[in-house]
Simulated scan of single mutants.
Amino acid sequence: MTNAILITGGSRGIGAATARLAAQRGYRVAVNYRQGARAAEALVREIEKLGGQALAVQADVGQGTDVERMFDGVASALGPLTALVNNAGTLEMQSRVDGLDAARLGRILTTNVVGSFLCAGAAVRQMSTRYGGRGGVIVNVSSRAAVLGSAGEYVDYAASKAAVDTLTVGLAREVAAEGIRVCGVRPGLIETEIHALGGEPGRVARLASGVPLGRGGQAEEVARAILWLISDEASYVTGTLLDVSGGR
């Protein structure tokens, strides 16, 4: 039986690139989305056309009942998960901290932090040998913003990703003896649609000169790092945060 992988926020950007690559490498792929049904279903058809097996599953990762329904449904359709990519995340219009309000902070933290925790917990309950599982890997998609702070743009997003880093390190230590590895990737300036959410679709081009490699990255470059962390080639890697940032 081939392995099953769930990618949250999998209908676009890094998530979609990871889904494509995972399917190419023989994974049965569950593509989670909250609102992008059309994009998720198109991605599933693309994977199936190339001979892979995929499933689109709607769920809001910040809602516990949605998360439980999603994990149960994926296990029923594809078999027990062996990998989770905690990729769902959001940001909002660029703003200083003194321009933020509680409603915005709640939205950011619910998706980026609460969602990551809820999905990680559900994955552990499926994968852990403590619960009769056969082990697996969780990869949390963080951001170099967690280190750099994103001053003047979205410190709230950066702080949420710093929380994801802490989740990665702490959870890795909790479940290491239960057959589960937990790692994180911290993408830098990557050419995806997320920059449009912040009000600056051309942000990568503006900042690319400050990247030691001299360019923005591609979603596929992050996907390759994620698939390496999931693979047996990374069997002695856990609690690790891998920067995919061109040196920035």
Rank of each mutant, 00 (worst) to 15 (best):
E200K: 13
I180W: 00
L167F: 14
A172Y: 09
R215D: 01
L171R: 07
H195N: 07
G184T: 05
A177N: 06
Q218K: 07
P212A: 04
T168G: 14
L171Y: 05
A162P: 14
V169M: 15
A205H: 08
L189T: 04
G210P: 04
T168I: 15
A145N: 14
V175Y: 03
S209F: 01
H195K: 09
L171P: 03
A196L: 02
A158T: 09
A163E: 04
A205T: 11
A176C: 03
E200N: 10
A176W: 03
G214R: 01
L197Y: 09
L148Y: 15
E193K: 05
R215Q: 05
L213I: 04
K161R: 08
D165E: 14
R181W: 08
G188W: 01
V182C: 02
L189I: 07
G199W: 02
V182N: 05
T166C: 14
H195R: 06
G202D: 12
L189S: 03
E153N: 12
P187T: 14
G198M: 05
G202I: 12
V182D: 02
A176L: 01
G199A: 06
E174R: 09
D165A: 12
A158Q: 12
G149T: 15
D156K: 08
R186A: 13
I180R: 00
V211N: 10
A162Q: 09
A196N: 06
I190S: 00
V185K: 07
V164N: 00
R203W: 12
I180N: 01
E153P: 00
G170E: 14
V211Y: 02
A159V: 15
P187G: 14
R206A: 07
E174L: 07
A177E: 04
P201K: 05
R144I: 15
P201D: 10
T192R: 01
Y157H: 10
E153G: 01
Q218H: 09
L189G: 04
L197P: 00
E200M: 11
A177F: 00
D156N: 15
E153R: 12
K161C: 08
E191S: 02
L189C: 09
I180S: 01
A159Q: 07
A205F: 04
V211D: 01
G199R: 08
V185R: 10
A208S: 05
G217H: 00
L189M: 10
I190Q: 00
E200I: 08
G202Q: 14
R206I: 09
A172N: 09
A163Y: 14
Y157M: 10
